[in-house]
Design a binder for these strands. Structure first.
Length: 578
RNA sequence: GCACCCGUAGCUCAGCGGAUAGAGCGUCGCCCUCCGGAGGCGAAAGCGCAGGUUCGAUUCCUGCCGGGUGCACCA
């Protein structure tokens, strides 16, 4: 399929070249031409504002420039008219015959509608969720997961080969605490006296009681004398299964699970450190080189640590890579991990992080740049926090576990309102995505379970349902779209086709700027275009001529394909029934 | 205190330097309900404040005001 803005931009650029050659425009360096749909229908289908920007360099009034460009626009099968409008726009109107023909093109492309080639031959990696297996997946992590998975889908649509990766650490103190906590619960379940660790080392979650009960069933008293290790292994496996299962509920899966520990085993972290050292970016000291009094006071008597001189890159303070104990901080493996990613040959490595990890990525980027890789290949999306609301009030719902903050809780809450698990998953995916990541997200529970057009999820999916419904009825009545003549379609249908063709631009922009949320907004706009048309464009009505009915049925086949494609990009279901 | 994010309609949010700033919810009014599980049409209502850059600023820059998050030899 054509990306119309690109095609039209090429027409405009060529027009400027011809105008210059003909002496209608003075010589100047050709600007980038930006083509967009204008706000108002009378302004055409696409508009170029390039004449406005050229006024100064060309030394002519914008309107005059627009006229001279328009004069040199070559004809094209998809363009019906080129119009110039004050103060200097060049507006394009699409050919209706061409638009009607796109109905067939859309049907042919189907699930691959607007599969672009901007990423063809390139490999992208998206790393998301990456929660350590110490507890169930939270709502906050879910947002990042959905943004990550949707970004991956958009990149795939843009032609990239995409890998979804989950980075985790099963070796740290947290995991030891988890193992110890389960050990305590296990012994308690067997009625043994056992000392409970201090609160900051003890996982209180009720799920550990379940794990302990299962462990008793499976192993009996076999583990009473064991240390934390087998308990950690058991808890880790159970927790990972649980996290994966929760994510599967909202159609999120990963291709690669990367264990941070492997960076220790392979020595990659020490290699990274040595290379930074060779290049003069690290030093060993008890205090950072530029320590102020406050840092000095806080540091009190610690031994020598290894510091990364990030202030040389503009950071406000240097960062510790190896603690005085000889143990690396989280930062060092993170650097080694990102070096590993880039060495695997990805053209872009997208990283979805919560707002609480906001500064970490900068340090990694400094390091990656210092080690000679291209830090711009690492693209970071930082998403802000999530709140849940009901009746206009923030919900801190009490559940079995005490706090309302896991993905499972959220889905179960929605399902308890009598919507299906699949619908709940769709609602979660849509609402978590349909916001720019940089804003706080308010999840409205009332809206999410509402089954009417006030709920965008319902409204969008209902468009697909309506298309499917027409085909059911058509089949029952023996009407088919075989041999349809799309030239019989009318203005209403064309309005939808125009909107449908914007999908290509949406995918392109979403992929280039890593803005998957644009697909969510677009889906709603598309549905808003669809529903009024559906009311007007009857197929099986007694007053509709058979040949027109065929054409309209063909149109609904295309419309259905567009909705199926968009819902697929959003990781949502395209239901046949509501 | 420093850093990052956010201030757009009563509410939740779009708006990638360009034409008269858009949706949904809510409010008010109207229509349909023969491929239907609440669909459609319309109305009122808004860029936090002050400067600056620009032919042009909701958009970029600076300062202020207001809200959120983060500022470990944790991960």
């Amino acid at each position: 399929m054509k990306l119309l803005p690109n095609e039209i931009a090429a027409l405009v650029t060529n027009a400027m070249v011809s105008a210059q050659a003909a002496g209608d425009l003075p010589a100047f360096e050709l600007p980038v031409v930006d083509i967009r749909p204008p706000k108002r229908p009378e302004q055409g289908d696409y508009a170029a504002s390039v004449a406005l920007a050229l006024a100064k360099t060309a030394g002519l009034p914008p309107l005059e420039i627009a006229n001279r460009i328009a004069k040199h626009i070559a004809s094209a099968d998809f363009i019906a008219a080129v119009e110039v409008a004050p103060p200097g726009y060049v507006n394009f109107r699409l050919s209706e015959d061409w638009l009607k023909a796109q109905v067939e093109a859309i049907i042919v492309e189907g699930d691959a509608l607007f599969a672009l080639d901007i990423g063809s031959g390139k490999r992208a990696q998206v790393e998301f969720v990456s929660a350590n297996p110490t507890g169930p997946i939270t709502i906050g992590r879910t947002r990042g997961g959905i943004i990550g998975d949707s970004t991956a889908r958009v990149l795939e649509a843009a032609g990239y080969t995409v890998e979804r990766e989950y980075y985790f650490n099963n070796a740290g103190r947290q995991m030891r605490n988890l193992g110890n906590s389960l050990r305590v619960r296990y012994l308690q379940a067997l009625g043994r006296e056992v000392e409970v660790p201090p609160a900051d080392e003890f996982y209180q979650g009720e799920y550990l009681l379940d794990f302990a009960a299962d462990l008793v069933k499976e192993r009996g008293e076999a583990l009473v004398d064991a240390d934390w290790q087998p308990f950690k292994d058991y808890a880790e496996k159970r927790m990972f299964d649980w996290i994966k299962q929760s994510l599967t509920r909202i159609k999120i899966t990963h291709d690669v699970f990367f264990n941070e520990n492997s960076l220790y085993e392979s020595g990659a972290i020490w290699t990274a450190l040595e290379e930074l050292q060779e290049r003069g970016h690290v030093y060993k000291a008890a205090l950072p080189e530029n320590a102020d009094d406050e840092t000095r006071a806080e540091a009190g008597g610690k031994g020598e640590a290894v510091w990364f001189r990030t202030t040389a890159f503009g950071d406000d303070k240097d960062r510790v890579l190896v603690k005085s104990s000889g143990e690396p901080t989280y930062t060092l493996p993170d650097i080694a991990y990102h070096m590993n990613k880039l060495k695997r040959g990805f053209d872009i490595a997208v990283n979805i992080l919560g707002a609480d990890h906001g500064t970490q990525y900068k340090i990694v980027q400094y390091a990656v740049g210092a080690l000679g890789e291209d830090p711009s290949k690492i693209r970071v999306i930082i998403n802000q926090m999530v709140r849940t609301m009901r009746d206009g009030k923030e919900v801190r719902m009490s559940t079995r576990r005490g706090v309302f903050d896991t993905l499972d809780d959220l889905i179960e809450e929605l399902v308890s309102e009598r919507i299906t698990p699949a619908a709940a998953a769709d609602a979660v995916r849509y609402f978590m995505l349909a916001r720019t990541p940089s804003t706080h997200l308010t999840f409205d529970l009332d809206l999410a379970v509402s089954q009417s057009n006030e709920n965008p999820v319902y409204y969008i999916q209902n468009a697909h349902v309506r298309c499917a419904g027409i085909f059911r009825e058509a089949t029952a009545r023996g009407v088919s779209d075989d041999g349809a003549d799309v030239r019989l379609l009318g203005a209403d249908e064309l309005r939808f086709i125009r909107k449908a063709l914007e999908l290509g631009e949406v995918i392109e922009q979403a992929a280039r700027n890593l803005e998957a949320y644009r697909v969510a907004f677009y889906a709603l706009e598309l549905a808003q275009t669809f529903h009024p048309i559906y009311d007007n464009v009857r197929v099986l009505h007694s007053e509709v001529l058979p040949e027109v009915a065929k054409a309209r049925l063909r149109f609904y086949r295309a419309a259905r394909a567009v909705f199926a494609r968009v819902l697929g990009l959003l990781g949502m279901n395209a239901p046949e029934y509501m």
